[in-house]
Computed example of a mutant assay.
Amino acid sequence: MTTTPVSTSSIEAKKKLFDMVLAFVKSQCIYTAARLGIFNLLQDEGEQSLESIAEKTNTKPERLYFVLRALAHLDVLKQKPGRVFASTELSDLLVTNKGPSMGHFAMHIIEPAQWDAWKVLEDALHTGEVPFERANGKGVYQFCQDNEWSGDVFINAMSFLTNHAVDALMDVYDFSRFETVMDVGGGQGGLIARIVKRFGCKGILFEVPYVAETAAAYLQQQGVDKDAVQIITGDVFVEIPKGADAIVMKYFISAWNDEDAMKILHNCKQALPPHGKIILLQAFVPDLDEPKVAPDGVMPGVFAVQVNVAVPGGGWRTRQHFQELFEKSGFVLEKVVDTQTNLSAMEFGRKS
């Protein structure tokens, strides 16, 4: 009996698919270890035996071992003889007790409420519902407001994304030409803090009240003078405050469908002086002939699915789509600036 040899290309294709299909196992192991505080423990106290980790996390050693061993195989942890585990460069990035980190981002993306949304994705594709809302009975922002842990993780996850991308942005985009910059939907103020400290301009942080509650303390921790950034709370669909000659929005407008986005942009236009600018900070879904992976490894076209599963009309757009959206709202594209992360800037001026 003879067997037909398997082509190298077929093997490689199967390897790619196995990795994709089993990706949820990897992410769940990361989430579970982050939620249990294992990455914090190993960084703070050094390498630990399986039994020690299990005792300190109130888990069963033989069950926990499978998770820790898998993380070691992924180089997230290091396994030593005697079932001893130690931290690595990857696990240090997932520590959550030293400020906003990739650990917060992982916990937000993979937490049960988000996971439940993926369970109903097929049904939601038929009905047109937002999967997160179908699974949880409310929108993601309301859910985070009603659930303290989820809300805290969400805010820290967004702060991590800001910290991850902002330094690369500051190296290629000059905010010093503006007198006052307003960050719309700016979370705790990570972006506006960096802008005012580096470029010496004044800042305004505009957010919903429950998110802005922690902003004053966060800005103080960042060494921002209390008079440098004004914190204003409100609703982007009602009115955006005047007083800035530049508005920045980082990943914010992608949470809304085109109709809602245009309402927000209309209010931005009303708030800006004639010479004012609006700077969209965003990861752009590539067109067919553009690279599919950003310099930092993010695939915007894949991440866009996560956004769309979580929020109404959400989903990252192509540069062309964003340009058309802003032009319909009374703006004209003046420049595009790319960075060494997934974040790029599109600067728009008001149409005369």
Rank of each mutant, 00 (worst) to 15 (best):
D245I: 07
L93D: 14
V95A: 08
L169W: 00
L64N: 02
D258Q: 08
D338H: 10
R35L: 15
M299I: 13
F143R: 02
D146Q: 14
E122R: 13
V336G: 00
A157W: 04
L17R: 08
V6G: 02
E62N: 11
A72R: 01
G103T: 09
I231N: 09
T4M: 11
R69C: 08
A33M: 04
Y251S: 10
F331K: 05
I30Y: 08
K351A: 10
E327Y: 02
L161I: 10
P312R: 11
P81Q: 02
E51T: 12
T57K: 04
K202A: 09
D227C: 01
R69D: 15
I11A: 12
F132V: 02
T3N: 15
D245A: 08
F175T: 04
A310L: 14
T233L: 07
L68C: 09
L191N: 07
P241E: 08
S49N: 04
L265A: 03
Y141H: 15
M158E: 08
F66C: 06
S10V: 10
L93K: 15
A23P: 02
K56N: 14
K242Q: 12
Y210V: 09
G137N: 08
K80R: 13
G313T: 08
R317I: 01
M346G: 03
E45A: 07
R350L: 15
P131W: 06
H275Q: 10
A193W: 01
G187C: 07
G189H: 03
G137Q: 05
R317Y: 00
R63G: 02
H104Y: 13
G200C: 04
V153T: 15
V25Y: 13
V120M: 08
L68P: 10
A217S: 10
L41W: 03
N156L: 03
E12G: 10
A72H: 06
A261P: 03
T127N: 12
K98Q: 14
G186V: 01
R83Q: 11
D171F: 01
R198M: 03
E259R: 15
K197A: 00
G128I: 04
K351N: 13
E290V: 01
A34D: 08
N342R: 09
H321R: 14
R177V: 13
G223A: 00
